[in-house]
Simulated scan of single mutants.
Amino acid sequence: MARTSKNNKRKKAQSAKVTSLAAENVPPSRRTVLGWIGMGALGVGVLGGGGAWAVNSFNRSMDERDLSQIGKGRPSIVQIHDPQCPICNALQRETRKALGKLKGEPPVYLIADITQTEGAVFAQRHSVPHVTLLLFDADGKRVQTLTGSRTRDELEPIFERHAR
């Protein structure tokens, strides 16, 4: 028990010392300032990384919605897409994963967003509903239509043949 009371006295003394230093407006220690600088640098890094990811994601999204890329010398795949449709979102994920597995240069992947005027006109011109993939050759001629949900295992061989 003597030990407990000695420890309690020491803790009370340390607490009193900290309180008195805070009351005297003692400047922060070097260690405290370096800690603040480190946390600030970490915060800047996290915000910068997040910002770079957001800009890259936005640019990729804009490139995917540029339907003028069809027929520009590379085969292309256009998804007729409704962003509010869970089946469309699943097809988009599966399509991206299947394209990511292809060896060599994959076809251009584009999105015709039917909630936007350009995408709705495109879907109407080709007379297809959402949850559809349209495959175009390098000259812009439609060569295949895939309607409905597909898995990456189903899509990969189709895309492999289309990329040739």
Rank of each mutant, 00 (worst) to 15 (best):
I111C: 07
G104L: 11
P107W: 13
P75K: 05
Q116F: 05
R93H: 14
H81W: 14
L102Y: 05
G104D: 10
M62D: 10
K101G: 06
Q69A: 14
K103P: 00
S76W: 01
I80N: 01
A98T: 11
R93C: 01
K103C: 00
I114R: 08
L102I: 07
G100Q: 08
G73P: 08
E105I: 15
P86N: 07
S68I: 12
D113F: 08
Y109M: 15
I80L: 06
L99C: 01
M62N: 08
A98I: 09
E64K: 14
G104K: 14
R74V: 00
A90N: 06
R65K: 14
D66N: 15
R93M: 14
S61I: 04
A90Q: 11
I87D: 02
I80W: 03
I87G: 00
K103D: 11
C88L: 06
P107I: 12
Y109A: 14
S76Q: 05
A90H: 02
A90W: 01
R65V: 01
V108W: 00
M62F: 08
P86C: 04
I114N: 04
I114T: 15
E94D: 07
S61M: 07
Q116A: 15
Q92S: 13
E94N: 11
Q69G: 03
K97C: 00
L67A: 02
L67V: 10
H81P: 05
D66Q: 12
G104V: 10
P75V: 11
A90S: 11
Q116D: 15
G100H: 06
K97S: 09
Q92L: 12
K97V: 07
K72P: 03
G104W: 09
S61E: 13
R65E: 13
E105A: 13
R96T: 10
V108I: 11
E94M: 07
I80V: 15
Q92I: 04
T95D: 02
Q84M: 04
C85P: 01
T95Y: 00
R60S: 13
S76K: 02
C88F: 03
E105H: 13
S61W: 09
D63W: 09
Q69D: 02
R96H: 10
Q79S: 06
A112N: 12
P83M: 03
C85W: 01
P86S: 14
R93A: 15
E105N: 14
M62I: 12
D63H: 13
P106E: 07
G100W: 02
K101H: 06
C88W: 00
Q84F: 12
D66C: 05
K72S: 00
R74N: 02
E105D: 14
